[in-house]
Amino acid sequence: MAAELSPPFFDGHNDTVLKILMDKARVADIVQGYDSGHIDLPRARAGGFGGGFFAIFVPSPRGSADRMEEAQPGGYDFPLPEMLDQAYALDFVNRGFEVFADLESAGAITICRSAGEVGVALDSDRMAAVIHIEGAEAIGPDCAELEDFHARGLRSLGPVWSRPTIFGEGVPFRYPSTGDIGNGLTEAGKRLVKECNRLKIMIDLSHLNEKGMDDVAALSDAPLVATHSNAYEICPHARNLTDRQLRQIAESDGMVGINLASGFLRPDGRMASDFGLDVLLRHLDHLINIVGEDRVGLGSDFDGALVPKDIGDCAGLPNLRAAMTDHGVDAALMTKLTHGNWLRVMRKTWGE
């Protein structure tokens, strides 16, 4: 692998599977390459994108995420969609598992169930793919579905996307705002945390509100992980993490993946891509200062967000690597930030 593509990036979050589920891409597009989206195999190879957590997300008929282009300077507050019906969500999630199988059969990904398997896949011609479900609407209050999902390869779960679930409440797409909005986990939510711990499924705190995160921190025996969130001190968006929350993550020996969504990076909260990577580096510096250099990585939100123009898609990751190098990131730290820290927290979470 060329020096500018090594070490490979492992990513905390992408929505590429959703592109296929919504008929905006085909499995063949991900294998052969296409002119839309952020991730396909040729661009991954061109950019040193080794893989990541690939999400199954169940969309609302029309929700806040569809309206990000309406975000304006000075502030915004998009109402959250209503809670989803479980049967509808379960059908969509089952289709998502089928997409994973199709992508693996076509040679685009290797589905990974352990950190060891991720490490091997990062050195292969396929993308390493850890199955993640973003929002637990497909799971009932007794969590019975969780064991089946785990057997099918699920290794990471977000109890909520931003809309509420029977397990807890998420944060709205609101700027400026903290995530201190709404109540904590329900009894079903606390049961879900315990079941995830039992099965060694990573619990993703991105999108969960502040009281919910406090409840997870009090209950969970695993590292606290926010797969795609940024620093509130740099961008005061409800989706970002305050220093208090970052200290919780550090105390648990957890992990934060830097989200490339423009509105969660820019200090003005706008969903506009015309800004330099110096803004992202400010988040990187702040996160390292609070949680330490062993607990920060990438959580791109590719295929689910408007990313900085200097990155554009996964083929643009050498520009991020170059910006970090110019910023003083040496080879050892680069390995940690690109994938080493993710491998560490996966091993610790999954008991390897």
Rank of each mutant, 00 (worst) to 15 (best):
E134V: 04
G292M: 07
F54G: 01
G189A: 13
H38G: 01
G304Q: 02
L122H: 03
Y232S: 11
F57R: 00
G328E: 03
D215R: 08
E352K: 10
R126S: 08
K348L: 09
D40R: 09
A28R: 03
L18Q: 05
D214C: 14
G189K: 02
I133A: 09
A144N: 11
M127I: 11
L265D: 08
A151D: 13
S60W: 14
A226V: 04
T227G: 04
P172G: 06
P318E: 09
N94H: 15
V17Q: 03
L208Q: 10
G212H: 03
D243L: 06
I39E: 10
F53K: 00
G304E: 06
P73V: 05
W342I: 03
R191F: 07
H207I: 15
A222R: 04
R26C: 11
D148Q: 10
I258V: 14
R295T: 15
G63H: 06
M83C: 11
M334N: 14
L281Q: 05
R270C: 07
D66S: 15
P236C: 10
P79R: 08
N289G: 14
E233S: 15
R152I: 06
E251N: 05
G107W: 02
G74C: 10
E145G: 11
E4W: 08
V296H: 02
D11H: 01
G12P: 00
S300V: 01
E210P: 10
V31G: 02
G328V: 04
H150S: 08
G297W: 00
L90E: 12
P81A: 04
S60N: 15
T349L: 06
F173H: 12
P42Y: 13
D285R: 12
D326H: 09
L333E: 10
T335Y: 10
L41F: 09
M346Q: 04
P79T: 05
A151I: 07
K190M: 08
D180M: 09
S156L: 03
R321V: 08
A151Q: 14
P141N: 06
A25Q: 00
R43A: 04
D301Y: 00
G47S: 11
D268L: 15
R155L: 00
H228C: 03
L199G: 12
S206W: 01
I249H: 08
G328N: 04
M68K: 13
D310F: 11
F302S: 08
W161K: 07
C314Y: 00
D15R: 02
K19F: 02
P236I: 08
I288F: 11
L21I: 02
A250V: 12
V27M: 03
R152S: 11
A3T: 13
Q248C: 12
M68C: 12
D330L: 15
